[in-house]
Computed example of a mutant assay.
Amino acid sequence: MGLSSSSKQIFQDEYFTAFVDERLRIVRTVRGDKPFGTLEDLDGIFARLGDALDTLDRSRYGHLADIRAAPGRNDPQFEAAMDRLRPRWIGGFRKIGVLVRSTVGLLQIQRHARRDGVNRLISQDEAELLKYLTEED
């Protein structure tokens, strides 16, 4: 189960691709497998992604963040930078679902959710996330 054939790509760089599915009212961001460069690079990466997502009325959409391909990284400097930048990526959406590859990834995202105070469903099951994101509140 994935986004419908009516989904359209709204952003792509070497780190992320973003799609919007108007029928399902879901935005999907897919993190590629290329490691981030320096911590200073992160500001530009998330500014560009955030600008693309800002072209949408975020409150109308569920957001599926597919991070299965992301290289694992949890050093303190990276974690601090992501705490600062994550709202630019996931902020303002009606609901958030995070698709992870492993239990380790699930635990890391749970830790982020506690620090952010932003509710999200974290799962290795895409169908479960899509069901959650398309349910009415």
Rank of each mutant, 00 (worst) to 15 (best):
A52D: 01
V30K: 01
A69I: 02
A52R: 04
L64P: 11
E126D: 12
I109L: 09
V104C: 00
A81S: 15
P87D: 11
D75M: 02
L121G: 01
R114I: 13
L53T: 04
I122L: 04
A47W: 07
D43T: 07
Q108G: 06
G32Y: 01
W89D: 14
F36C: 00
L99W: 11
R58V: 05
Q124D: 06
R111G: 09
E40H: 08
F46G: 01
R84W: 00
D66I: 09
L64E: 08
F93R: 04
F78K: 06
S102E: 10
W89I: 01
A113K: 11
G117H: 10
F46H: 05
R48E: 11
L85E: 11
F46W: 08
R115I: 14
I96N: 15
G92V: 12
W89C: 04
D43S: 09
L99T: 13
D116L: 15
E40G: 06
L53I: 00
R86N: 12
W89T: 06
D83M: 11
V30G: 02
R60P: 03
G32H: 14
S102F: 08
G117N: 10
A127E: 14
R120G: 05
L53K: 03
G62N: 08
R31L: 12
L42C: 02
L49R: 01
V100R: 01
